[in-house]
Simulated scan of single mutants.
Amino acid sequence: MNTTFLIDGRLVFHREQNALTSLVQPDLTEILNEPCARCLEALLAAKGNIVSQAELYKAGWGESYKDVSPNTLYQNILLARKAFKKVADSNEEFIITVPRQGFRFNETMPVTVSDTSVISVTDKNSSELQRPVDDTESLRQTVSPLLLRLVLPVSVLFILLAALIFIFASFNYVASRDDDFTADFTYAGKHSGCEIYINKRQTLSDVETEQLLTILPGITSGCSRLPLRFITPYRNHLSVFYLSCDSTEKADRICSSGYQRLSE
């Protein structure tokens, strides 16, 4: 079975292919990476209700969600937003940030969900489709144009391109313009020239923070260039994700992500 989302009567998200496409201009198609597609599916299925960051971690990365940094989640939400902007050819806000709670899909844009097997163009007149008339018409308008356009060579090309973009974004500086993640962190003082912030979901005393930074000096390297460090410990503080940023102003902020691991 394949899940198809009809969005605002003009876009369709085909979960099996992780493809977002325009019904008005079927040539406008974006292939999302797997975690990004899973997060988008969770937002669409919620139909305008808030989906917490914890729920998105689990939806996008399954059992390995505890090893995912906040920056990775924000990057995937940003990829989904860019896909909507390109496919819809507009600056409308499809995914809305709810500060300190999570994200939601714009409730002013109706979403219709259909679970169906893959349908070919020749199925249009088949009498075997025993669905209500409205649902059948929706499937004819959404699935058929998509299948006509997503031939195998083009699909492979888009998947490879999306993977390269994701890998590049994960290991290079990114501008944090859409989400002010700093609200999830508490200031913990200075260390080795860096301003230290600890994720509010973690409980670290001043002594524990100092011990962590002493054991892992790499967290506070390069403070002259990126002086702000936003730290999220995992696995009983054995694994640490952190963001190194140059400013708290989200419009101009430049950050890079890092990962450190202690010996167990």
Rank of each mutant, 00 (worst) to 15 (best):
S257F: 04
G102W: 04
V240Q: 04
Y259K: 11
N33V: 15
Q202W: 00
E30P: 01
G102V: 06
L161M: 08
D89K: 14
E210M: 04
R201E: 14
V154Y: 07
K66D: 10
R10F: 01
S224E: 14
H237P: 00
D179T: 15
G48H: 08
L226G: 03
S176A: 06
T116H: 10
Q25C: 05
E30R: 15
R149A: 13
I31H: 13
A251G: 03
K200V: 11
H191K: 12
L20M: 08
S117Q: 11
A45K: 14
P132K: 12
L157N: 09
P233K: 02
E208F: 03
A59Q: 04
G258I: 06
F13R: 01
K66I: 08
Y242Q: 03
K82C: 02
V98C: 13
S224M: 04
Y173A: 11
F168L: 08
A54R: 12
I77Q: 01
S224H: 05
V133N: 08
A88P: 03
S176P: 01
A45S: 15
T4V: 15
S263V: 10
L164I: 07
I215Q: 08
G218W: 01
V174P: 00
S256R: 10
T136C: 05
I167F: 10
R261L: 06
I219C: 03
T97W: 15
A45T: 15
P35F: 10
R229Y: 03
S224T: 11
P26L: 07
F158W: 06
H14E: 13
G60M: 10
C245Y: 07
F230R: 08
D180K: 03
S138F: 02
I167S: 06
V51F: 00
K250D: 02
T220F: 03
K47H: 14
V174Y: 07
L147M: 14
V156L: 12
Q130G: 01
G222T: 05
S205I: 05
Q130S: 10
L43Y: 08
E208K: 09
A54V: 04
C255E: 01
E41D: 12
L262K: 14
V118S: 12
N33A: 04
L23N: 02
T214Q: 11
L6Q: 07
T220H: 03
